[in-house]
Amino acid sequence: MKVSTHLVSAPLHTPFITALRTATHADSLLVEVTDGELSGWGEAPQVWKVTGDSLAGSQACVEGPITAALDGLGPDDLTEALRRVQNAATGNFGAKGAVDVALHDLAARRRGQTLHGFLGSTVDTVRTDMTLSVGDPDALAAAAQARLADGFDVLKVKVGTDARADVERVRCVREAIGPEPTLRLDANQGWSRRDAVTAIRAMEDAGCDLELVEQPVVAADLEGMAWVTDRVRTPILADESVYGVRDLVNVIRHGAADMVNVKLAKCGGLGPARTLLELAREHGIRTIVGSMMESHVGVGAAAALVSAYPTSAVNDLDAAWWLKEAPVTGGIRYDGALIHLPAAPGLGVTGLTV
């Protein structure tokens, strides 16, 4: 097997604004694992403010210790290859996730199966929410109405910049969209524990009818998140607090959250993601699968995972929707809130567009 890397920077059609950053491009490292005429693809996004993984670091990890660890293995040694990828380096979850997905993609293609079929599913569509970037109340309300018109019925509002102002933003969005659409929030670690409780209770009292609030406090403050969870009616979803199994175990022990958001670039690929989903279910923790600012490669892999391992709520896989154009040919296709998985083998990706 040959491992290659490709740096891509795909412009967004609309800036993506959160409490942590503003993005105008999706910068990723695409990984290609080749066996003869077949190639498997994976993706490591650059998300400085969340994972800390850089394109340069992911590329160095893939081309260095991970490629060295795979040396001498054949394409039929998937289980051993995945084990070696996870043990090749500490951290570097984006790099590991990209190679893990590429190896799964290649294995599926060699069998002539779709990736979701390879994972054991016959379901070829999954639903996603749609994110509303941080903005003033009027802009958020207008964006919410536009996304409903686009066919999305689960909206995620980015908050966390100012707790008091966030209450007004969310109230305006709920007023604009009416009672039927599902509304969820993502604070991206932006609130203190006291601000989180004050804001969430205010929204509950205002009838905002929130499905969940994601990562209200800083990732390391599990006691703070448990304090919030105990004091509000709205379910709390852990995101940045959970990368791997040890993190999820700590969330469970602290009673820090009702739900967990599993992301391939955080946990290191499809193998670790399946473990996290199964562990969460065993302990009564509800689940969703999310995405970073990834292209059709990373989102396609996450969608294939969801197809085979259904989650407790609609998933957060809108990242590739924000791209002006895909950096690859083939792969998933958006149709409103539905993501259509490809019928072609693997991820259905046939090459780069740049």
Rank of each mutant, 00 (worst) to 15 (best):
R110C: 06
G120D: 11
V126F: 01
R83T: 15
R110N: 05
L82R: 09
I177P: 03
A102Y: 13
F152L: 06
N87K: 12
Q113K: 12
V62T: 10
S58K: 07
T90R: 14
L82D: 03
L148I: 15
A102L: 12
V62M: 11
F118M: 10
A88M: 07
G112P: 06
H104T: 09
G120N: 10
D76G: 07
A88E: 06
D153P: 02
L73S: 01
D100I: 04
L155W: 01
E175Y: 00
R147Q: 13
V99G: 10
A176K: 02
K156T: 04
V62D: 07
M130Y: 07
K158W: 08
D129Q: 09
R171N: 01
V154C: 13
G72M: 01
T67H: 07
G112W: 03
L103P: 03
Q59G: 02
V154S: 11
L73C: 03
G151P: 06
T131I: 00
A56K: 05
E63Q: 13
L132W: 06
G64H: 09
A98W: 09
L73T: 00
E168P: 01
V101G: 08
V157E: 11
T114S: 15
K156D: 07
V167S: 03
V134K: 05
A68N: 08
A88K: 10
R171K: 01
T128R: 01
A95M: 13
G97F: 14
T67W: 00
P75T: 02
F93T: 15
A95H: 08
S121H: 09
R147P: 05
D100Y: 04
E63M: 12
D124G: 05
D105P: 10
G117W: 13
D136F: 14
A107L: 10
A108Q: 01
R110Y: 03
V170N: 05
T79I: 13
L140D: 04
R169L: 00
V123C: 11
T79H: 12
V154T: 15
L70V: 04
L148M: 14
T114I: 09
A68W: 00
A142G: 08
Q113L: 15
A149G: 12
A56Q: 12
R169H: 07
A102M: 13
R84E: 02
V101I: 14
L103Q: 05
R164H: 12
A144T: 05
F152P: 07
L106I: 04
D76Q: 13
D136G: 10
T125Y: 04
A88Y: 08
V126P: 01
D77S: 14
A141L: 03
E63R: 12
G94K: 10
L148W: 09
I177M: 03
G57P: 09
L55M: 08
V126M: 02
D136H: 14
E63K: 08
G97L: 13
K96S: 09
A107D: 03
V126C: 02
G135Q: 10
V123R: 15
T79A: 15
G91K: 08
L140A: 10
K96Y: 04
Q59E: 15
G64Y: 07
R111E: 14
T128H: 02
A95D: 07
L55C: 04
R171V: 08
M130Q: 09
N92P: 00
T90Y: 15
A108W: 02
D129H: 10
P75K: 00
R147V: 02
F93R: 14
K96L: 08
S133H: 06
G57N: 11
K158T: 12
N92M: 14
C61I: 14
T122D: 14
A107S: 15
